[in-house]
Amino acid sequence: MNLFKLISDLEQADPEFLDRINPRRQAFKYLGHAGKKVTAAAVPAILASFFNRAYGQTVTDPVQKVLTLALQLEYLEFHFYNTALNTSGLIPSSETNGITTIRNDEAGHISALRGVLGTNAPSYLVSDFDYSGGGGSGVGPMASALVPNGAGNANGALFFAAGQAFSDVGQRAYKGGAPTLNTTGTKDILEAALNIHSVEARHNSHFRTVRRAIAANAIGTATAAAVSPYDNAPKSWINLIDNGGPTAPNNSKPASAVYGAGNPAGTYPADSNTSQAGIPLVSGTYSAEAVSEAFDEPLDPGTVQTIALNFTSAAGKLKGLFQQTF
């Protein structure tokens, strides 16, 4: 392979090629340094990285970053539900169909997002995640969520609690990313993301319905009563901040940031927000609880990544999972 001839040919076909792989036109110098240290076998990999830098808009395209974060979140959810479905005795029989459907939806979202991202789409294994919530330690507060009848996990209670938290992070993240996708050239991508976003919200509603039923010892039914303050027996919508969300076996609130404010809080308020577009909505007719339930709030990508890194293993961190710069 004549590398220098190939680059020369590319430059003739595309005069800006060298500018785009290296704005200071030091590509050959860079290559020269690299060439001293690599074997011939590594050359195709170097070429691939050059082409990605030149045509992938890897670091400059905000749309791509939003979609990549969305894809990473879909992998987080997909592997969690897929692992649960493959763990005998974890999911009660009345819930198997629902969780299978949710897993398949997430696989569809992965398929769709990869279709948009193309060759730049990363992929992740189940070993890239730490579902204990320990950020790679494997012994975080949610460690028994995938253990049948583990601590706090009778009837899969902790599994459904984690599913609620993951899908709420998902719906808040898509909501936060939507404005970035709203450009003239990406309206179809925006609409696709909106059509995924509402499915995440439907999943979340179902997780909450299941948790209400587990709390009432009525699993497999949809009309068990929600119980204030809604952390253990939630409504199908978010009441204020749901008292910090589900409680872990060690009595911590590992999902509290899921319902809290993002950054800046003015744009990404906590779910207890009662004012929209500068209009305060609490009145003699409408309580703060009702107003907070009527609106879900977006979350910024930085806060989403901070939350998700708690569920990322050392292997995932090495791959850059949930570590984009926004």
Partner: peptide
């Protein structure tokens, strides 16, 4: 977006 996810719920 804030409203549609509540409708989906």
């Amino acid at each position: 977006g804030k409203i549609v996810s509540v409708e989906a719920r």
